[in-house]
């Protein structure tokens, strides 16, 4: 009799499985978890901590708060940050002061580990939430974060 009870039991388990998928089929309209990505671009909101790419915020006077301390460059495991700096004479005090010329960020080498942003003492760099980072030419992945003609905000000290 085990033969027939096996068949009965087997068919029972199969029907149980079909009930699970059947339930989803009936509720297909509201249950769909698909994100229709390029269509929902306008409403798609990334989380505020999402690590897309490193950016350097500038204020309305075209000033940033990077002092050129190079802590981010040291913290980066991949060498994706390069800082070109020089000592310039501060017109007010007349002293020589470290200032960045270019804050170069190689997005192509970045692993989005977040150590540079964590290391920055003056919060000069932060994460942007954009995730559409693909480009046609690899040179476009090398970005200069400080805008041309920008300078360090007064009061931000090393």
């Amino acid at each position: 009799m085990g033969y027939f009870s096996d068949i009965y039991h087997g068919i029972g388990t199969l029907l149980t499985g079909m009930r699970v998928t059947g339930k989803y089929f009936i509720n297909a309209r509201k249950g769909a978890i698909t994100q229709q990505y390029p269509d929902n671009r306008d409403t798609l909101q990334m989380f505020e901590r999402f690590r897309g790419e490193v950016v350097m915020p500038h204020d309305e006077n075209n000033e940033h708060s990077c002092t050129g301390c190079q802590k981010c460059e040291l913290a980066c495991p991949n060498g994706s940050i390069e800082i070109i700096w020089d000592r310039v004479i501060d017109p007010e005090t007349g002293k020589k002061k470290k200032a960045i010329d270019q804050h170069i960020y190689h997005l192509g080498m970045c692993t989005q580990c977040g150590l540079c942003v964590d290391a920055c003492p003056s919060d000069a760099i932060k994460w942007a939430q954009n995730f559409e980072n693909s480009v046609y030419d690899r040179t476009q992945l090398t970005r200069i974060l400080n805008k041309p003609g920008s300078k360090v905000r007064a009061g931000v000290e090393e």
Partner: peptide, 10 residues
């Protein structure tokens, strides 16, 4: 289509 409706897809 049927596969998608079974699988929470569109």
């Amino acid at each position: 289509k049927v596969a998608a409706w079974f699988q929470l897809r569109i």
